[in-house]
Amino acid sequence: MKKAGILMILGPLFLLGLYVFPLWNIMLGAPQYPDPLGLNIHINGLRGVSEFDIQNIDGLNHYIGMHTLPKAEEMWEFGTFPMVIGIMVGIGVLIGVLGYLGKVNYKWFLGWFLLMSILGILGMYDFNEWLVDYGTNLDPNAIMKLTNPDGSPMTYKPPLLGHVKMLNFDVTSLPSTGAWLMFMGMMLTLVAAFMGWKSTKNQN
């Protein structure tokens, strides 16, 4: 149980990477952009991969009536997410320490993992909602109003995961370093739960 406790302390600490590294990354490449434009999504705001990428993405998107990318203060998520992650790291480490001391059992580990998973899924859901809004809530006075072959207005929601061709741009959306660190950390807590369960079983 001590080893499991150590893993349970380490796992949540991996989430601290989210304060440094981006959670998600969206790249926009086109023939006229040999160096693609890129958007890094951090838990506390959006940043360009290169210094002026956000300005240049906004500059392009205004043709098709998309709103400018939100500043950190314009979305509650960028204030809330860092707090949620902080609280979850705190709780996780506390559970790990208590587990190490034998005060709580593996079920708490599993509980933290499940709670974090639910929060993660909610986060993804929220993120997707924003992508939908960003890509479909278009300025009615847009310079270019494009339609699909069936006559419906064309929308520009970037993919949550993977690649789509959007007008002249290849848009690729993938988890970034922060997400991978979070994934590894959560896996560690799952391993901790498994080890805790095994040691409990062995004691029995």
């Binding site: 160096d35 210094e51 002026f52 300005q55 240049n56 500059g59």
Partner: peptide, 11 residues
């Protein structure tokens, strides 16, 4: 005098 400043920061 037309003093023109280009606000683009794109290559």
């Amino acid at each position: 005098y037309f003093h023109i400043t280009n606000h683009e920061q794109d290559f």
